[in-house]
């Protein structure tokens, strides 16, 4: 069980959080203008990488805020945590 640094509350145990899947997938502004394939790309396609992954987490049993995490899926080490709307760290 890892420790996650909530950008609003500080370091807490994983059991207080819920994972919300891949980050930086933006809901299309005009869904009705998309083809089935384009919509399916948004709806279903997710990366499943071994290594650095950008993902969303929510502090469910805390401040209820969503934020982003950069996690190495091969060893669960969290490289960065940043708020919604902030730019992902480049390195």
């Amino acid at each position: 069980m890892f420790l996650i640094e909530c950008p609003y509350c500080g370091e807490r145990e994983q059991s207080e959080f819920k994972a919300g899947g891949e980050a930086h997938i933006i809901r299309p502004k005009q869904p009705t203008e998309l083809s089935d394939d384009q919509w399916a790309e948004y709806l279903f396609m997710r990366k499943n990488i071994k290594g650095m992954q950008f993902e969303r987490w929510v502090h469910t049993h805390g401040c209820r805020k969503w934020f982003n995490v950069v996690r190495d899926t091969s060893n669960d080490i969290i490289k960065a945590v940043y708020k919604m709307g902030e730019k992902p760290p480049t390195k």
């Binding site: 819920k18 919300g20 933006i26 809901r27 929510v58 469910t60 209820r64 969503w66 919604m84 709307g85």
Partner: peptide, 13 residues
């Protein structure tokens, strides 16, 4: 509630 918060915070802030 969780789903509504998700949309509010991440899609429609």
């Amino acid at each position: 509630l969780g789903k509504l918060e998700d949309y509010l915070q991440t899609e429609w802030p």
